[in-house]
Design a protein around this nucleic acid. Structure first.
Length: 461
RNA sequence: GGCCCCUUCGUCUAGCGGUUAGGACACCGCCCUUUCACGGCGGCGACACGGGUUCGAGUCCCGUAGGGGUCACCA
């Protein structure tokens, strides 16, 4: 059985790049009828935040990527890790290292400058005694030979084992570190396929060595290229919109985000729109690209609009109420409103704003529009239309359409001497949903009220 | 800097030795239309560069350039 996982560290919200790798893993598990598991990598006690765990789970909830079995917390498993560390120690495959923070710092600096450090990081590798100093436990990486693995995206990966340093597997406070516990857990949780970010690529060599040390089977790895920001560099908080939940707040539908993400670094011919079912059916990590891709908001917006257009009105009304505080559940013309808005809005947030604009009295009249369309004779038309309305009873957009045309024919005037001014009277501008629909939504009394308000402001006696 | 990876329109990508290099987003134009959109039609626009291999190269090989990842008692 295929078993995949997503293993975030709880240091903040769920990152959009993280969501994509989670999605890939989830899809692959679903496609193979396997399991997708969630593990919280919280071995660094000093950096964990409980809110972060909740934020991550909330994001999973929103996107509908459900995990199988219980969430595993590494902080619950320290005893297990300790046992394995001891095993390596006993076998002479790991050792206590007494190098001080300062010594380590000097090694690090030298390496970054490209120089050979004056202190050997393997200094205590063959040290037999015990020192009365704090120590970390390091893994004994081989001094010669090769380490490699078959990467499902990049192909064969192999380096000289000597390139792998004796990395720390347990801190001086006894807590185990990432490159060690990852292997323990992936093995014990039965992981078969690991799809993760490219930033883990070099870690994989270390991890392969740990698998080897315990004699365990190495799972299949797939390293997916990073998502860059619109400028082409690594995405950071500064780029904005990296928190998955931010998309909910901005009015994006989860399926739009997922569709957007699945096409970043993966494709299936020319297809752009993928339902969740199609993704599951078509996804295959062998089709993942090797090059990093860029975040592209326009495409996301387009997809979001597509999914909004194809969502049932009922769902939209519900989301508008729950997430944007716009309640039109009781409005008798809500279907017309939503149908009209669906076509011209990119996000739910935008839709909420448009609804508010239509349903409330115009705050101001657009100066340019007023100047262009509200000539004196036109204002007179509005006055007459107001009267004309008295013995009419239009309800539907078609009714309103007929009433306007009747008036136009009666007066022998062109549409532009009535329609644009009417729009201005209704919402203060000449843009917006279909006029007849707008009037229908507002209802005769409200329409008359708004015409009167406009007349009161602009009519010259 | 060491090690590793990557490189097709502005962006996401198709391509798997022989294509007028295809699609999508964005942009521009036309049509539809009382407005704005939606929709339809059309346009702009790419194989990073240099060498090979081959009858033939976006596709294979080698360099160069550019980009990225990583080098923690973070994950």
């Amino acid at each position: 059985m295929v078993v995949t996982r997503f293993a975030p560290s709880p240091t903040g919200y769920l990152h959009i790049g993280g969501l994509r790798t989670a999605l890939f893993n989830w899809l692959w598990a679903k496609k193979n009828g396997g399991k997708f598991r969630l593990r919280i990598e919280d071995t660094d006690l000093s950096r964990n935040k409980q809110e972060a765990v909740e934020a991550i789970l909330e994001a999973f909830q929103w996107t509908g990527l459900h995990w199988d079995d219980d969430v595993v917390f590494q902080s619950d498993r320290f005893d297990v890790y300790r046992k394995y560390v001891q095993e390596l120690l006993d076998k002479g495959m790991a050792y206590k290292c007494y190098l001080s923070k300062e010594e380590l710092e000097s090694i690090r600096e030298a390496r970054m400058k490209g120089e050979t450090p004056s202190i050997d990081i393997r200094k205590y590798r063959d040290f037999k005694g015990e020192l009365d100093k704090p120590y970390v436990i390091r893994f004994k990486a081989p001094l010669e030979g090769k380490v490699g693995f078959e990467d499902g995206v990049k192909g064969k990966a192999e380096i000289d084992a000597s390139q792998v340093e004796d990395f720390v597997i347990a801190r001086s406070d006894g807590t185990p570190t990432y490159n060690f516990v990852v292997v323990i857990d992936d093995h014990e949780m039965g992981m078969t396929d690991i799809i993760r970010g490219d930033d883990h690529f070099t870690n994989t060599f270390k991890q392969v060595l740990v698998y080897r040390a315990f004699g365990w089977d190495v799972p299949k790895f797939y390293h997916v290229p990073m998502i860059h920001n619109e400028k082409g560099s690594k995405m950071s908080k500064r780029d904005g919109a990296v928190d998955v939940m931010e998309y909910k707040r901005e009015g994006y539908l989860p399926e739009a985000l997922l569709n957007f993400l699945v096409r970043l670094g993966w494709s299936h011919g020319d297809q752009e729109i993928f339902s969740i079912e199609e993704m599951i059916k078509l996804f295959d990590p062998k089709d993942i690209n090797k090059a990093p891709s860029r975040y592209n908001k326009e495409k996301l917006d387009w997809l979001n609009q597509h999914y909004i257009k194809n969502s049932p009105n009922e769902r939209i009304v519900k989301l508008l109420k729950e997430d944007f505080g716009v309640d039109i559940e009781g409005h008798d013309k809500k279907e017309i409103l939503i149908d009209e808005l669906k076509e011209r809005v990119k996000t739910l947030k935008e839709m909420a704003q448009e609804i508010k604009k239509i349903l409330s009295d115009p705050q101001e009249y657009n100066e340019k529009a007023v100047k262009k369309f509200l000539k004196d004779e036109v204002i007179a038309n509005l006055r007459e239309f107001l009267v004309f309305l008295n013995d009419k009873d239009p309800k539907t957009p078609v009714d309103w359409h007929d009433v306007m045309n009747e008036f136009l024919a009666l007066k022998g005037i062109k549409p532009k001497f009535l329609m644009p001014p009417l729009r201005i009277a209704m919402v203060g501008d000449t843009k917006g949903i279909d006029l007849a629909a707008m009037l229908s939504v507002l209802g005769k009394e409200e329409v008359k009220k708004r015409i009167s308000s406009l007349l009161a402001k602009f009519e010259v006696f």
